[in-house]
Write a protein that binds this DNA or RNA. Sequence first.
DNA 1: TTCAAATCCGAGTAATTGCTCGACATTAGG
DNA 2: CCTAATGTCGAGCAATTACTCGGATTTGAA
Lengths: 211, 211
Amino acid sequence: MPEKRAKKSAKRPVRRALQSRSRATVDAIVKATARILAERGWPALNTNAIAARAGVSIGSVYEYFPNKQSILNVIIDRHLAAGEAKLAEATSILSSGKDADDIVEAVVSGFIQLHQDDPRLHRALSTEVPISPAQRRRIEALRSKIVIAVTSALSEYVDGAELKATLLVETADALAHRWFVDKVGLPVSASTMAGETSTMLKSYVSAGRSD
Amino acid sequence: MPEKRAKKSAKRPVRRALQSRSRATVDAIVKATARILAERGWPALNTNAIAARAGVSIGSVYEYFPNKQSILNVIIDRHLAAGEAKLAEATSILSSGKDADDIVEAVVSGFIQLHQDDPRLHRALSTEVPISPAQRRRIEALRSKIVIAVTSALSEYVDGAELKATLLVETADALAHRWFVDKVGLPVSASTMAGETSTMLKSYVSAGRSD
DNA sequence: TTCAAATCCGAGTAATTGCTCGACATTAGG
DNA sequence: CCTAATGTCGAGCAATTACTCGGATTTGAA
């Protein structure tokens, strides 16, 4: 199980054309990878399993991907793109919001939506799969953009908007993770906890309002 | 890389006596495992590396541990025991507290202490290392006990103590993780965020107090 | 000193993986 | 049709494990 190989050797170049059939093959490989990750986790994700699940041979896998990690990168990049899209969508809501409570509501529900979509895959991606430095930077950038957007939205309602925005975002993210991804044992339902989270954050954000 | 083997076969029994030398050997093995986990993470943790780092041969490792996971179990069990000890210690503080704010303060600082001690190892144990169902149950039990203790402490000061205790504990735990383990990029220091976390949770817990 | 129990050693084994490569199959365009 | 580009295949190689085993070394009690 050589986790690392690659290095040098001008090996047969990866296919580029991608017409008709090969599109479907590539898609099947990516989908199979995502399904295995979600259903059986990173430890069960090996290239032979991917090929089998995709209904193609291992040879075909390496015809379109230089290595195993590159398949994951497609999935990770899509996931990040989804987060970035949601941010763009939410930004308009944030800036046209009525009051601070609406902003909190938008942030909390945004993170919940992000975590409710395929929680098992989300879990695997966020805690099991190895992430490249570039991807880590992209995650940080996304997080930072969210905080900036929320700060700007919040700043016309409260004092110390940046600090509050940071805590708001981190709390909403962390708790959405717990309720929907970690499925931690709770005395009440996840949706009840989500509602209570909103309540808590609204009172926090509105405490010491400037007007 | 057979992640799974064991199964049957009445192999040579694991040593039991543990006198003089062997104590040191066992200790070195456990310590080496913890250090590798903390410094280089789960992917780098293999039995040969453990033996080398401990300054013993692989043979000696398997003289005292039936398999790799059993070494980890010792570390996991110690970690859980530490958490349980801290709960016992905190329980007295909780029940002799002066008001709700003190309880929040105790919970937040308790989780911070737990996460500040060897954060890298904590990270590896909580997100990389495979945990057995029994250990998972023990974690759940510990979490549940903490919530019960906090609920009981809180119940003489506020209404809806259980719901509030649950959110308080989950938030303190999750955020301590972020500030000290994940070291997420922040515009301010972790200690500032910790203080703000306390502020937020105090106002939440005290909102709608019963007296 | 003597010797059996306790401890240690590390080359070797079997399993599992990531990945290669030469050959075969299918298509589209002429 | 023909044929070259495009696509597919899967046995097998090389690396990397977790773990075994026969024997060497050290220890403590007699």
